[in-house]
Amino acid sequence: MKTLTLLRHAKSSWDDTVSRDFDRPLNGKGRRAAEVIGRHMRDAGLAFDHVVASPAVRVGETLDAVETGYGRTFAPACDRRIYLASAATLLDVVHDLPDTADSALLVGHNPGLEDLVLMLVPEGAGALRTEVEAKYPTATLAEMTFDVARWRDVAERAATLTRFVRPRDLDPTLGPDER
Rank of each mutant, 00 (worst) to 15 (best):
M1N: 09
K2G: 02
L4P: 04
L6M: 04
K11Y: 08
S12T: 03
W14R: 08
D15M: 02
V18P: 11
D21C: 11
F22Q: 03
P25I: 05
K29G: 07
K29S: 12
K29H: 09
A33K: 08
R39Q: 15
H40G: 09
G45F: 10
G45W: 01
G45D: 04
L46T: 00
A47T: 14
F48Y: 14
F48C: 05
D49F: 03
H50Y: 14
H50T: 07
V51E: 03
V52D: 00
A53L: 01
A56M: 09
R58A: 02
V59G: 05
E61A: 10
E61H: 03
E61K: 10
D64I: 07
A65C: 06
V66C: 01
G71A: 12
R72E: 10
T73A: 04
A75F: 06
A75G: 09
A77T: 14
S86C: 05
T89Y: 00
L91E: 03
L91R: 14
L91S: 04
T100H: 08
A101K: 10
D102W: 06
N110M: 06
M119T: 15
L120A: 13
P122A: 14
A127N: 09
T130G: 08
T130E: 14
V132H: 05
P137K: 10
P137A: 09
T140V: 15
L141I: 15
V148D: 12
V148Q: 13
V154N: 12
A159H: 11
R168E: 14
T173V: 11
L174W: 06
G175R: 07
R179K: 08
